[in-house]
Every structure is written in structure tokens, then in C-alpha cells.
Nucleic acid binder design. Structure first.
Length: 327
DNA sequence: CACATTTGACCCCA
DNA sequence: TGGGGTCAAATGTG
């Protein structure tokens, strides 16, 4: 199939459309970074250029789309090809059109693509702000502990495709690996960050602070999650640090895990992860046995705000009423 | 009663 | 071909 007017195949057309969309996205990101940098109006020309670039990318994309034929549209929207445009979106379960009973459909599904997945290691089963519903548990070959499967509670009412798997991969100390798939689209989040002082600890020397990880400005939470940061009396050795890593992914915008040395005492960063296609590094700090430990749950923006340590971050939080992070 | 969890069944896909 | 991801009936919980 080849367009008589353009002389290119639908496959090439799809590549062009994706390329234009990615250009547009990159320009928009650049534009956002520019706006966040607080440059003065003397940079207006640069601002104008960026806006123009963004506009051009989307205009090109739209003109490409306006030339496609019905047959090409069918090709582009076929499940195989649309996967190039959408990650984890409205998967066709494959059986909907088939004349099978509900019982016969059992276990019939299209295996989830892992293009938008990342994982986190944590010394405890991580809590995050989203509502998860367990839908399965499997014992895995060569694994001591079963793997638990969770999906977003709003999978059906809001079509949220987020899911996660939790598996204990270590015993002493216990390490839980949480693998996330897809980002939340349900926006079922808490409205404002809060600081919670752990009332269980009456010693007075330990605090638990929890930011409800939601930016009131940008509802950035969907893509965020917690990481663990633990500080002991004499600090953590490298081996003791719970490790959080991130997985691959299609986006070249992925940030590398942050060098722990950028964080000042009294705590060390165990690991960080970022959201594909954004500049966010987010995380949370979890509990420790140390009587002087600082446990903070929430999100940390270490991109352009230049927060060197937790104190500065907390100061920002108390001053502005929301944590210093963004999408 | 509504919603969550458990668990065996089912079958995709590496 | 079987490991692993998902479904859905049964069961639990508040």
C-alpha cells in the first residue's frame, strides 16, 4: 500500500508522524525548561523560536495526518502499529469480538508491553499514594517468595492502566522489588502535600515526615513513587543501602540515577528514579531503626531548583506549601 | 452489601 | 512447551 500522492508507505508515514510528535514534545520540554529557568525578557527571541519550533512540529504532524487515506488509517490504527504511538493504552484484549463465554475468556489476555516499566527495591513493601487492588499471586521459578500482582483500583471506572508487581527478593535484610507498569491516568490523588509527624515515636528524637506526594499545581503524582533513604548513626555502608534502579525504557530522556553524593548529611540517598520524558527525580524516605533517623516520605525535585539538602527542601515546603518538585 | 483478597484456571509468548 | 500474567469465582472483611 502506497499513497498515490505522497509516494511513501504507511510504515514510513507512521515513522514520520512519530518523529514529528517527538520533535514537538522535545521542543515543548525545552520551552518548559526555559520558562522554569527564570530568564528575563531579553531572551524573548529564544522563547519565540522555541514556541515556533513546537508549533511547526505539530503542524507538520497534522498535515501528514490530513493526507492519509482510509486504508492507511486502518493500517496505522492496527494494534501492532498503534503500539508505536501509545504505550500501555487501551489494549485490545483480543477476545472482545470473539464469540466466547466469560469462562472461556479466563486467562485470555494480551501480554502487557513493558515499554513503560521501572522498578524499585525497598526494605519494606512500599506504600504509595495510589489505590491498588491485588489481582493475583504467583510463585515464581527460582524465587523463594511469591510475586504479587496489583492493578490500579480505577482500572475499570477510569481506564487507568497502571499496575505493579511486588516480590520479595531478599530475606536478610528483606528487600522488596516493586515493578511498575504504565503511569496512572486516574488522577485519584490527594489534593495537597501534608507533613505528618509520626505520633508512635514518643522518644522525641525520631521524626517521620510524610509529604502526600501531590503537587497542587501540576498533579505530578501520577508518575511518582517512593524510594528509600536510610540513615544510621554512623551512616550507611554502600552494601547496606537499599537500591532503587530504573529500567530502560523507550525514552531517551530518562535520567541516570542520581549520585548519592549530591545529598548532604544527615542522610544518604539510596537511589532515585525518574519519569520517562520528564526531568523529575522523585522519591521518598522511609523508616529506620536508628533513633536519630529522619524519615521523610514524599517527593524531591532535584532538577533545576538546586536543593542541596533536605533542610532546604523542607524550608521550601513550609514556605510555599508544596514540595519543590514538578513534572 | 460493596469492595478487597485469595487462588485455581487459563493461555500468551519467549 | 511451560513460565508467568491475568481472569474470575469463591471467600473474607467492615
Amino acid at each position: 500500500m502506497e499513497s498515490p500522492t505522497r509516494g511513501i508507505t504507511p510504515g514510513i508515514l507512521l515513522e514520520k508522524i512519530v518523529a514529528e510528535l517527538m520533535k514537538g514534545r522535545d521542543s515543548a520540554s525545552e520551552l518548559r525548561r526555559f520558562l522554569n529557568s527564570g530568564k528575563s525578557l531579553t531572551d524573548e527571541v529564544e522563547l519565540h523560536d522555541l514556541a515556533k519550533k513546537t508549533e511547526a512540529s505539530f503542524s507538520d504532524c497534522l498535515s501528514l495526518l490530513s493526507t492519509i487515506t482510509a486504508a492507511e488509517a486502518e493500517y496505522l490504527l492496527s494494534s501492532e502499529n498503534s503500539a508505536a504511538l501509545t504505550n500501555c493504552k487501551s489494549e485490545d484484549p483480543g477476545w472482545i469480538s470473539k464469540d466466547r463465554t466469560a469462562k472461556e475468556r479466563r486467562g485470555c489476555y494480551k501480554r502487557r508491553k513493558t515499554s513503560q516499566s521501572w522498578w524499585v527495591d525497598s526494605p519494606n513493601q512500599m506504600a504509595d499514594p495510589h489505590a491498588w487492588r491485588k489481582y493475583g499471586q504467583k510463585s515464581i521459578q527460582n524465587a523463594k517468595h511469591p510475586r504479587n500482582y496489583y492493578r490500579c483500583t480505577h482500572k475499570f471506572d477510569k481506564g487507568c492502566q497502571a499496575s505493579k508487581q511486588v516480590q520479595q527478593i531478599g530475606d536478610d535484610p528483606p528487600i522488596f522489588r516493586t515493578t511498575y507498569n504504565c503511569h496512572h491516568t486516574c488522577k485519584a490523588l490527594l489534593k495537597h502535600p501534608q507533613i505528618i509527624v509520626d505520633s508512635d515515636d514518643r522518644s522525641g528524637s525520631s521524626v517521620f515526615l510524610s509529604f502526600e506526594p501531590c503537587s497542587p499545581m501540576k498533579q505530578a503524582l501520577d508518575d511518582s513513587f517512593f524510594f528509600s533513604m536510610i540513615k544510621q548513626e554512623d551512616g550507611f555502608t554502600k552494601e547496606e543501602l537499599p537500591i532503587m534502579t530504573q529500567n530502560q525504557s523507550a525514552s531517551s530522556d530518562y535520567l541516570s540515577p542520581l549520585d548519592p553524593t549530591v545529598m548532604d548529611s544527615p542522610a544518604q540517598v539510596a537511589g532515585l528514579s525518574s519519569t520517562p520524558g520528564s526531568d523529575v527525580i522523585s522519591g521518598a524516605f522511609s523508616s529506620t531503626a536508628s533513633p536519630h533517623s529522619l524519615n521523610i516520605g514524599g517527593h524531591l525535585m532535584v532538577d533545576s531548583h538546586g536543593f542541596d539538602n533536605i533542610e532546604e527542601m523542607l524550608q521550601f515546603e513550609s514556605q510555599w506549601g508544596f514540595p519543590p518538585f514538578e513534572m
